[in-house]
Design a protein around this nucleic acid. Structure first.
Lengths: 216, 216
DNA sequence: TAGATTGTTAATCGATTAACAATC
DNA sequence: TAGATTGTTAATCGATTAACAATC
């Protein structure tokens, strides 16, 4: 991890896919790989792969290629997956429960400290060993535990209030599943939006206009 | 809906957000709006808004602006939201149940005809009035009902088999929540991927490298 | 050494933003 | 009419791809 000037989001959003493919190669017992070979497997351009990794340093060997396991480890370090940022999930509906397993099971940089909901049936239960608390306790919990990240899985009508509470307690990064525009409201927040409706509408467009091809 | 040459995915992925904001304006009783005003509210560039809509025709009036409700309707038509493409959801876990409501409740271009799972507890039940069938019946169902789109919410280990089955029955568009690479496997398929892990890792990167700012 | 493949610069391509004439 | 704002062309900016010298 050497250079590090100003990495574009385009590059960053490709890193998780590299990480995944490198893990797959490793599990297949492949020890080294050239950018050309990796590009062919991933359906991308070899120049792009070399450019992308060179944003962070020199990880290859001329005439030889890249060591799969070292490149995978490095990619994980660049992404920061060795961290255990304290996180909370707000909203324990189907979506909240679904993403709970993403945050807590996989080793993806986070540690899930609590889930918050307003349903008496859910409060006091556990989801993947993580306790579900009353959302009324969210503020006290955040002031005490200082989570770094919050996943927002509540109805739109509640999103603004929840975001305000979290922000006022010092939470500055959000995994946002609502259409509430946290990034516009708090310009210093780091917001990763997952807009399922937008994705579904995009799919609808592409079905309705099949001349388009491009994917990702 | 006039021109229509070759619209870039960048433009298309912005349409759902326009649609949402226009709906919001309409519900606030705002009748007309200029690209400048809309741009300020959305945090984007006014030129971009005019360029984007002009891909599809001329919807404004010089010196005046755009009629909110007409522009919203038009955007919905462009996206194809008036359709009711027959769809199935495969996998009735938390994620499958969460997206079921997105497909069936909202008027977003699809009609959800069935949900498939392998759990005896779930087979025979209903989720938002949509029946849950045995995944063993998926092939017969698809041959009979000819769904256009399938949402894939199964574990990675099952994804390849499910995709093969669906493709062989004629399904060519997929809302894919797994990391199985349908688009690489079937080059004529329309695939909209939702990679929650990738999104989470990107968030982890941005928390670990706070010098970066850009969002969306 | 010869062959292969990186790291990196240069060329191309596409997307965003600015400018302005057309026109309501 | 004058002022405002579109539709559209031109300029800028950034991202992708190609080329190739460095070097293992």
């Amino acid at each position: 991890m050497a250079k590090r000037e100003k990495i574009s989001m385009s590059v960053i959003r490709r890193l998780p896919r590299y990480y995944r493919f490198l893990g797959l190669l490793e599990s297949h017992g492949i020890v080294r790989i050239s950018s050309k070979d990796l590009a062919a497997r991933m359906g991308v351009n070899a120049s792009q792969i070399r450019q992308d990794f060179n944003c962070f340093g020199e990880f290859g060997q001329q005439g030889y290629g890249y060591m799969v396991s070292r490149l995978r480890e490095t990619t994980g370090e660049i992404l920061g997956l060795h961290n255990a940022y304290k996180a909370v999930v707000v909203g324990a509906g189907n979506l909240g429960r679904a993403i709970t397993s993403h945050i807590s099971f996989e080793r993806h940089g986070f540690f899930l400290a609590g889930i918050f909901d307003n349903s008496p049936q859910k409060i006091g239960t556990f989801i993947h060993d993580v306790p579900v608390f009353d959302v009324a306790e969210l503020e006290a919990f955040c002031k005490r535990e200082k989570p770094v990240m919050a996943a927002i899985c509540v109805p739109l009508s509640a999103a603004g209030r929840i975001a305000d509470t979290l922000y006022s307690c010092g939470v500055r990064s959000f995994w946002n599943f609502t259409h509430y525009d946290i990034a516009m409201e708090y310009s210093d927040a780091i917001v990763e939006n997952v807009h399922l409706n937008d994705s579904l509408m995009t799919l609808c467009y592409r079905i309705s206009n099949p001349e388009q091809k491009a994917s990702l």
